[in-house]
């Protein structure tokens, strides 16, 4: 069993040694994942894990990958994508040029979903989608546009529930157990590593999507990230969060108006 205090010491040592800052992350989730790493990599206790982590520089990459959650889906929460389709896309369509930032995009499934929405509204050509994650390994997949083929039935159902009317299978081809998205859906995607904890704003966006990332942060870090988003959204731009996340308790709340039942806000000031 790992106490909050033992975890804190581990996180501070990781930060000093490698520069990865997990100190503002939610402790409950991290403790669960550190335990899982100990099980998977057969460390009998935290001391053995620490030894490997700080004596073997090649191990840290794996550790960081396993410490962060990289679970994602296409068209997760179809009602959210329906709201994007009906209320956000038409507003974006009026602009000469569209910039969208998926912060914490993992392997890219939400980016692929967004690209399909833009394509169906005939505005993909004038859009750029920035996908960032702290984890470089997952980003490699975003440009490849690969999705496990066994997930496509579910994603197709999500797509239809979100109001999609095309033949979903026309957006990919099957390759050895993987579905490869059409290249025109990933051509307008720019990927980069970006750490929400330590990196700053790098552009101004019409829409920032950051779903189920803030749940892993404590309240102080959430506030920092929300302010980073606020300073990176153009006036009348949009912010979209996960279905159980909110800006209600943040200082930025006063500058945003909630659009509907979904977790989408529009910047008003």
């Amino acid at each position: 069993m790992i106490s909050d205090q033992e975890l804190n010491i581990l996180l501070e040592d990781i930060y000093r040694h490698y520069g990865y800052d997990f100190i503002g992350y939610s402790k409950a989730s991290l403790i669960r994942r550190v335990k899982r790493i100990c099980n998977m990599d057969k460390f009998g206790n935290l001391t053995e894990l620490r030894h490997r982590l700080f004596e073997d520089d090649s191990y840290v990459k794996r550790f960081i990958e396993e410490l962060t959650v990289n679970v994602t889906e296409m068209f997760r929460d179809p009602s959210f994508y329906r709201a994007l389709r009906q209320e956000v896309i038409p507003a974006l369509a009026t602009k000469p040029f569209i910039r969208i930032w998926h912060a914490g995009c993992s392997t890219g499934e939400e980016i692929f979903s967004m690209a399909i929405l833009l394509e169906e509204a005939n505005i993909l050509d004038k859009a750029l989608i920035y996908g960032t994650d702290l984890n470089a390994t997952v980003l490699e997949n975003v440009k490849r546009g690969m999705v496990p083929l066994d997930q496509m039935k579910k994603y197709s159902e999500n797509y239809i529930a979100s109001g999609g009317q095309q033949d979903f299978s026309s957006y990919y081809t099957a390759h050895y157990g993987q579905a490869k998205l059409l290249s025109r859906l990933t051509d307008k995607v720019i990927i980069s590593t970006h750490n929400l904890v330590s990196d700053s704003s790098f552009n101004e966006f019409d829409l920032i999507i950051c779903r189920n990332v803030l749940i892993y942060f404590n309240k102080d870090l959430q506030e920092r990230v929300l302010q980073l988003f606020e300073s990176s959204i153009s006036t009348l731009g949009f912010l979209a969060l996960g279905s159980k996340e909110t800006i209600r308790f943040s200082a930025i709340d006063g500058n945003f108006r909630k659009l509907n039942q979904e977790k989408i806000w529009r910047k008003t000031k």
Partner: peptide, 14 residues
């Protein structure tokens, strides 16, 4: 999950 200081924490792991 239960976070330190007795608040709820959500997690969308596998």
């Amino acid at each position: 999950l239960i976070e330190e200081g007795r608040s709820f924490a959500l997690d969308d792991d596998e």
